[in-house]
Design a protein around this nucleic acid. Structure first.
Lengths: 213, 213
DNA sequence: ACTTGTCCTGTCATGCCGTCAGCTTACAGC
DNA sequence: GCTGTAAGCTGACGGCATGACAGGACAAGT
């Protein structure tokens, strides 16, 4: 699908070129997690990678372009989140374990990619379609199978559109908790209680029942 | 409380100075809602205000400093959100109306200030304490009275800490919906259904019961 | 050794950042 | 009206980031 990796001016990148390119992406990633997005400069990334700004511009149109690259890579990676829901049981105690593992996995994924996800979230909020699409891909990797679970476990009274809405709300809540965990602790939620609380919310949303003790 | 407005180098600002300062803030606000945060430049703000970059630096240390100013102003303004909850009844149909009006008011506030709130949210996520504090002030203007409502309307079994947690989760959901409304519509939630759905969630969270039809 | 195509950097023009000295304006005291 | 003082603003400057280009370094094949 992707064809070959190409430079900005259309040349195909060879082995050495791809290494340099990757190194730049890695350094940018590192940079994003240590500096505010607004302060990330091409020259700093290039320096960190032991190369020159000109080299950076051979492979990426600008910082945003390179960020999109990283974000797309992460979005691919987010496909693995599906396995946290797909084919899992939501019955009784097993169901609550499913919920706990989902919360755990989701938060872990977010924490691992928090720097890049911050930028993606900002871009999406600013109305950039490319970032929006990437964000939806990540959220949908959980929301889609979760909606399916809701459909299978909720009563038959609700319409199909409700299931997606419930799943969306739950995923939004998880994302908010992952991105602003500190807000919850300042609301009196102890760090160790955050995951159980979220797991409870998810279980309630999917099954509509209180979990077994 | 605030004392006088001062320039960066310590002079007190007079009438004309305050006007210029305010004009710069207004233009920055405008700028933020039309350009990505990363691309907002001092020189553009100054040009738009019909002044020079040097003047900008007389009143603000940098773009971030000016943004903080706007954000603090907005945080003050957010105090009005309290009235959406304080002294309202959560009983029966009236209760659901309370919930609807809360959702409506919150979303309206967020929409009105969405540009600055995006930046505040980013800053908070990046770990900046000043932005975090401002964000908490906005969220708490709803979360605090909402927690009180939860305590008054939920059963007596739950501990006090739970009420804050529930209120926090609800407010987080509202913020997510306000900031990423498009995500919900792409999950099949029609624009006109978003507010009723949120109102339902809030009502459920506060009272623990389904609303009367 | 020579050729070819990839890869990187030195250099340059441009433009923004952030600071300073110094000019203008407002105003209070006389 | 004159003058001193502080407020208000800007031109100009060194410094740095951006983005483009030409040309040198390098690897691989002939």
């Amino acid at each position: 699908m992707t064809g070959q990796v190409r430079t900005v001016d259309g040349r195909v990148a060879g082995r050495r070129g791809q290494e340099t390119r990757q190194k730049l992406l890695d350094c940018l990633r590192e940079m994003l997690s240590t500096s505010p997005y607004r302060d990330v400069k091409v020259i700093d990334v290039a320096r960190m990678a032991g190369t020159s700004p000109a080299t950076f511009y051979q492979y990426f149109p600008d910082v945003e372009g390179a960020v999109l690259e990283i974000a797309e890579e992460m979005a691919e990676d987010s496909g693995g989140l599906k396995e946290l829901v797909d084919g899992k049981s939501w019955a009784g105690k097993t169901g609550f374990t499913t919920s706990e593992e989902l919360v755990d996995g989701f938060l872990a994924f977010w924490r691992k990619n928090d720097a890049i996800l911050r930028v993606v979230t900002l871009g999406a909020a600013e109305g950039d379609k490319r970032f929006f699409k990437i964000r939806m891909k990540v959220l949908n990797s959980v929301a889609a199978p979760l909606a399916e679970a809701v459909r299978n476990n909720q009563g038959k009274t609700d319409k199909t559109v409700e299931a997606s809405a419930v799943a969306g709300a739950l995923v939004s809540l998880l994302a908010a908790a992952a991105e602003h965990g500190k807000a919850f602790t300042s609301w009196g939620v102890k760090v160790k209680d955050l995951k159980p609380n979220l797991a409870l919310q998810v279980y309630l949303g999917v099954t509509g029942k209180k979990p077994p003790k």
